[in-house]
Amino acid sequence: MKLSGEMKKALKTVGAGGAVVYLTTSSKNGNPNVVGERFVTLFKDEYILIAEMFAQKTRVNLLENPHGVITMSHPLKGRTWTFSGSATILQEGLPDDYVWEGLRAKDALDEWGDWALKEPPSEVPPDIRPPSLVQRGVITLRVETITDFAPENAGANISL
């Protein structure tokens, strides 16, 4: 799946000019879960990575039902995009040769396995800054569909 240059620029942490996003998952029997995420990046052009630090229900959901939806939240700047696709958690401890949907876990974890060191949340105000950041892996979504979420165009396929 191709992403536009604008999308590539936006799928970064806020401090790097990107955006906070919402990650939506669901249990296998249809109980949805939605959580705001700050540590986000695009990896190898088709995977969106999110730091797995405090995910609890998300983790349970992805283990039983590997689907995810990512929506842009703040700052929006007209970036009304919904990215959907297969999703998983690439966990520290996986074998070096573990490959998910064409992505080698080691590649993602080597680069983004210690997000707080690579991109510390220095711009985050004290009252919402996490007390400590301990990462267990990366939540990974392979982008399969891109749709618009603007109300007048909701659901329109804008995949390139």
Binding site: S27, G30, V69, T82
Partner: peptide, 11 residues
Amino acid sequence: AVASKSGIPAV
């Protein structure tokens, strides 16, 4: 967020 009975989410 909503989901189908089979767990496919939509937002």
